[in-house]
Design a protein around this nucleic acid. Sequence first.
DNA 1: CGACAAATCTACTGGTGAGTATATTGCTTA
DNA 2: TAAGCAATATACTCACCAGTAGATTTGTCG
Lengths: 210, 210
Amino acid sequence: MQTLETKDAPSPFRTRAEKMQDRADKREAVLRAAVRMFNAHGFHATSLDDVAASLGISKPTIYHYLGNKEQVLIECVTRGLEPLRSAAEQARAQAGSGLERLRRFLIDYARTNMDDFGRCMVRTGDELLSPASAASIRARKREIDATLRALIAEGIADGSIAPVDVKMSAFALAGALNWPARWHDPAGPDSPETIATGLVDMLIGGLAPR
Amino acid sequence: MQTLETKDAPSPFRTRAEKMQDRADKREAVLRAAVRMFNAHGFHATSLDDVAASLGISKPTIYHYLGNKEQVLIECVTRGLEPLRSAAEQARAQAGSGLERLRRFLIDYARTNMDDFGRCMVRTGDELLSPASAASIRARKREIDATLRALIAEGIADGSIAPVDVKMSAFALAGALNWPARWHDPAGPDSPETIATGLVDMLIGGLAPR
DNA sequence: CGACAAATCTACTGGTGAGTATATTGCTTA
DNA sequence: TAAGCAATATACTCACCAGTAGATTTGTCG
């Protein structure tokens, strides 16, 4: 019987779903190659010819999958933002004290800022994007920030967090946890996990002795 | 008597010292114009023609004062780094507990990161510079970081700072205090002074209640 | 005065890289 | 089997911009 393809004898005739998957895979491969090069050399110093060459394809192929260079960047940033959005959603739904939920969120936040897309997201300033795209991305970042501030406020309300200045604390936390996007070396000895918990513990405990 | 120029009758014949000053002033003006445009639109999106136009001069005049575009950026970054170097020097010389000296240093650090040159310094990643210049600047930044770590270690030794992980804490502090270079709006309601103390107080106290 | 140096301009060169026109191949579907 | 579409390539165009050549002006110094 041979009505469905099997693993052993994959048919060269792809179904529609397979072809859509194929296309999505290729798009993804372009983005992964691009984000690595953006992180390594910067957006402007990376030409789409370079990205194409690194994949053994030609530039028009990239244009076939992604409309233009800015679109490539936007997709990378979007992929970097998505885990944050999802972590924020979870944090809002979770039970527990404000501090407990915040801690969980901060660790997720720090960790995803160290993967390829997260790093690109953090490092992509407004000036690299068209005004419209910059605004759209800023809006999404603002939502993450709103969650961060809400968690801090809830912690203060339930007594699990000291009565700090919410806005300043949110900026301090974000800054401390974004910064690894610029210095963390994936090849180095410290895993993202270790760094994330190290940073968060310091931020929660502070420098002054207790 | 008219042997020396007076404020009322400034001679049009400049002395050698005056001309050197004049030259330095013009160099400075170029750098100030450039750093503002770099901060607003990014290094690559700012052409030297734009900078020249904003001063009502022509591009070759910029080349007359500064060798090339990278040199302009390097000078901007250097000017952003200098106050940090000087604050670090002071902090090392000062008396007081580790925490007191660290606090003073952190506030200076945060404040200077919000002026034009400081912002440019923070935002200029290695990828914008030639390998040689990037290395030189990285070395200078490493010295600041060494001071930061030394102050933390001293504070731990004298008991004014909790026994935190020195490296992680230094990164967390630097990140939190560098971040305003990306979000602070000089036209906004919060002065650099306010932000600096707000951030530092939160970092010293931590989030957890005492 | 005459030569030199500083300061500045206009007008160019040369390289780079985003984005496109167009051709080709092969699969899908009416 | 013809039409149409997806995927891909080669070989362009076009704009921009760093950097330079060379002319000009003006003040300085021997």
